[in-house]
Design a protein around this nucleic acid. Sequence first.
DNA 1: CAGCATGCTAAACACTTGTTCAATCGTCGG
DNA 2: CCGACGATTGAACAAGTGTTTAGCATGCTG
Lengths: 197, 197
Amino acid sequence: MAEDRTSRAVVRDEALRLFAERGVEGVSVRQVAAAAGVSPGLVVHHFGSKEGLREEVDRYVVAVFEKVLKEAVAGGSSGSVAEAMAGQLPEGSAVPGYLSRLLTADGEAGRALFRGLFELSRQALAGMVESGMATPGRDPLVRAAFLLVNDLAVVLLRRRIQEVIGVDPLSAAGLERWGDEVLAVYGGGLREREETR
Amino acid sequence: MAEDRTSRAVVRDEALRLFAERGVEGVSVRQVAAAAGVSPGLVVHHFGSKEGLREEVDRYVVAVFEKVLKEAVAGGSSGSVAEAMAGQLPEGSAVPGYLSRLLTADGEAGRALFRGLFELSRQALAGMVESGMATPGRDPLVRAAFLLVNDLAVVLLRRRIQEVIGVDPLSAAGLERWGDEVLAVYGGGLREREETR
DNA sequence: CAGCATGCTAAACACTTGTTCAATCGTCGG
DNA sequence: CCGACGATTGAACAAGTGTTTAGCATGCTG
């Protein structure tokens, strides 16, 4: 069967997968080339350097993620980043893993991404305040940040969470269990006795 | 002034600092040796290999962290990991950064650490339930995991949070602002109108 | 057809990597 | 004093790194 993607795209996708798995420093240009079935020289020919490849993957992942976010909002889901990723991305996608690295390592791409997400979080909180679903809190900036990082924590610690509760929190089943609990706590705090189903 | 730590400890501490900063793969044995003011050969002499050094740093960081946790509990703070670290560790310590890598990368040390923290979180939740401060929720495992990862998110995304709210959430000032908001949400949910100071 | 850009490879480059080894230094027990 | 032993170094090693270069097809354009 014929390869329909350009080999440039194949290299980019394999780099994305490997970088997400072992980190950029942990993967050599030769390993990316081998995974993509091309020569090391071609990688440099297309992207200028390993750093150039990393930047392209950064841009690509951010673009995919923003598209995913936009479509999730349009599709009328809740404002959860985790839910958007789980719903829109194919199973086994390397995008969540790559985003984790982007957000925790330093670098301009991750910084800008987080800043944008924070703005979205602020707007989401403002919207909830307007519709009476929430209070701005004593410190609205911190409240918006709190909501954002709690959401992102599920992505960053996905594997660890799966190890202890037994289900991938970014799967459909996991997201439902997780979302129920989040809704309960955000709705009425830890003390509230929830109605029995 | 005389160097009182053994050079083995100096190497370990510099490795800890550099590994936390740039990742294990991003730091060479020679760089660790240079930072510690010794020869590359000595690093191997003491730790067997770079991998041996990493394992030693893993063990050391976990030991420091568990001591910090224990003392924070004894000191009667809340059950927050973030608060314990901020209170007990010297300013500028590389331990939080190293722990972030330990928890997000895979590896046995991080897995075991998270598992242990999860057990503590379950016990803490159980204690709160017993004293009437919380409900087990419909899904107590998920609730315990939710509380844990929200706590850890502050450590993992520390720098990013600082960038958007302007204060290090692991500093004294930052912890107070953050803790207030957490307490409010956990206490009564997002909707509750908090008393005006 | 000639010519030229494009996608691609194989080989080689200089350099860095983790690790080994023989040789020194310093200190301490007999 | 002296032998031994741990700490330490400098030099060397093979292997792997990112990158460069020359060349080879292939296909499009004049």
